[in-house]
Amino acid sequence: MTDVKMTVNGQPVLGQVEGRTLLVDFLRTDLKLTGTHVGCDTSQCGACLVHVNGAAVKACTMFAFEADGAEVTTIEGMAEPDGSLSRIQQAFQDHHGLQCGFCTPGMVMSAAALLKETPKPTEAEVRAYLEGNICRCTGYHNIIKAIMAASGQDVSAAVA
């Protein structure tokens, strides 16, 4: 077992991990942050997407030890300090950007990474950025719409 130290959602955390402990398992099992989901466990679906030092990564394809010293943000860290939903989360609710909700943590984290890089993305840019996030319910249209709306763009005319 190896000691790891990182900052998760602004809070310093300490833990002990095996070499093979995945970041997603450390978050879910050790830190009880179960908002980060394991969908496929094969790097395909993006349900486990978190930010490590500001970059979107699949937490199922990174070892916890590799995040030693890093700043990690999970879906639990996305709400506003007063507990209200963030702009992106609110847009997912407003535009019905989820059905079963399983992929949603990854979608929101992906959307946040995209909007940091590209504050006003085109629809094509949103779709391209989400190529590593799989949703089996929505058909993506409302997810795209929610992200476009969260970026401050008018989606009233968008076809759902």
Binding site: A56, V57, K58, A113, L114, E131, G132
Partner: peptide, 9 residues
């Protein structure tokens, strides 16, 4: 290559 999260690692 891959997708954005893969490209970050």
């Amino acid at each position: 290559i891959g997708d954005p999260a893969v490209r970050n690692r």
